[in-house]
């Protein structure tokens, strides 16, 4: 064999060795998954350890989260001395921020049934859910604000409890916004700004009510309150 043949053979060997190694690496790269799938649980994962198969453990009955303490106050129940309260908890002054937060949360959790206006004509109602009462009735204008908090917390009729979905303070914010909605549909003329009065004379044009400019007016009147 010539020197040239030798070097070619060596080169071929090297190339072959390189690709064999690469192929082995590629084929075995799937063998070590222990860092991808670590011996730990992610939320709501399946467990083979607990009998019910749930990695996320249900709370022990009666457990109180750290930092919460007594839960029988107005803030958590909407009641004072067992009676629905017509005032907001001390720790939650009704500010513009609270009402705007309430509007945002209302539009996430409540509008599907109650509608953006609170008239009980939401999309799910249009699809066959039992129609909830409109907020714009004498009865619901007269109920204490704690009533709305109580309904959100414990459910009412066909409405499930929203306690697990909407945190306590957000429920109060929504209650504040419901009051705002009620006011927006029942404000005396003397409370209204000239631009609001001008709107009254215009014919309502379907979805125009949901227009942003008008939503601002609603916020504006809430601000007056």
């Amino acid at each position: 064999m010539t020197t040239q043949q030798h070097s070619i053979a060596r080169a071929v060997n090297r190339v072959a060795a390189f690709f064999t190694l690469a192929l082995v690496l590629v084929l075995t790269s799937g063998c070590h998954q222990d860092m991808w799938n670590q011996a730990k649980y992610k939320p709501l994962a399946k467990s083979t350890f607990f009998a019910d198969g749930l990695a996320s453990r249900p709370q022990v009955p009666g457990v109180v989260p750290a930092g919460y303490g007594a839960r029988d106050t107005l803030l958590y129940t909407g009641k004072v001395d067992g009676q629905l309260a017509n005032s907001f908890p001390e720790e939650l002054p009704v500010t513009r921020e609270l009402i705007l937060r309430g509007q945002q949360r209302f539009e996430i959790y409540c509008t599907p049934c109650h509608g953006r206006l609170g008239d009980g004509n939401g999309m799910i109602v249009q699809r066959g859910f039992k129609r909830p009462p409109s907020y714009h009735t004498d009865r619901l204008r007269a109920v204490p604000v704690g009533y709305f908090f109580d309904v959100m917390t414990n459910g009412f009729g066909t409405m499930y409890s929203y306690a697990s979905r909407v945190p306590v303070k957000d429920r109060w914010a929504i209650a504040a916004y419901i009051r705002t909605l009620q006011y927006s549909q029942f404000a005396p003329e003397t409370d209204m700004a000239p631009q609001d009065l001008a709107l009254l004379d215009q014919p309502v044009q379907g979805l125009a009510l949901l227009d942003k400019s008008e939503a601002k007016t609603t916020e504006g009147s809430a601000h007056h309150e």
Partner: peptide
């Protein structure tokens, strides 16, 4: 139906 993401993904 126009349901917000956060209605379910709370």
């Amino acid at each position: 139906l126009g349901i917000d993401c956060r209605y379910c993904h709370t």
